[in-house]
Nucleic acid binder design. Structure first.
Lengths: 110, 110
DNA sequence: AGAACATATCTACATATCTAGATTTAAGGA
DNA sequence: TCCTTAAATCTAGATATGTAGATATGTTCT
């Protein structure tokens, strides 16, 4: 049988390190840890269950919409965040399982 | 008073993430964890107290001497490794204090 | 001093990343 | 259906990274 924990392979760790090798992307991951503290409440949804929408992240980061969209997709490909579509908004939330597995992997391997 | 532990600032974490966003550099850091297992003994010195010389790391990595030298200097600038000159050889060993501080910082901040 | 060797630096080129404006796609509302 | 808005994709130029060959520097040996 397989263990319950998911192990990250080398390549995935490299992709995560690349994603976190940029101040804005690192900030985004930290901001998403506490959406209430870092973003204004989203009027149409009223909660942060699925994270924060691209528009608000763009606003907070101060870079262009296309740049932030590109960053978020890169972070999503590295499995750091999870997108959820609500109507015309895309919400991104942290993938806590992968983030803690990543830290555990560094602890063991580094 | 200041705490005894040294804290890594944001910029240093980014530099470490950049250094670790490459398979060869990540490998080098892991290899240096156990020089006996990963490198042949150095004839002229007979121990690994100061790590492993560039020549042996180059040999193990299979990239050019100039590439590995460049990588090692980048890792040193990110404080991940410490160079020691013995005659014509430069030995590099892990900077364990920074590495564990880095992991601790990720644990706290990520 | 001169030869030989280990490492660092310089130069160069290919590829990747950063970033934004323009365009396209998808969804909602008039 | 048409207009508006949010987000993704396309295009492009500036900058950074990956990587190696050539050269310079520092050290040891003869």
């Amino acid at each position: 049988m397989f263990s319950k924990t998911s192990y990250l392979c080398n390549m995935e760790i490299i992709d995560i390190n690349k994603a976190l090798a940029n101040q804005t992307r690192l900030n985004i991951l930290k901001w998403l840890k506490d959406p209430e503290a870092n973003f204004k409440p989203h009027e149409d949804l009223g909660h942060f269950n699925d994270g924060v929408c691209v528009f608000h992240i763009t606003e907070r980061a101060g870079l262009s919409q296309s740049t932030i969209s590109t960053y978020l997709i890169q972070m999503q490909k590295a499995s750091l965040i999870i997108p959820t579509r609500h109507g015309k908004w895309t919400y991104y939330k942290r993938n806590e399982a992968v983030i803690s597995e990543y830290i555990r992997a560094l602890n063991n391997q580094l």
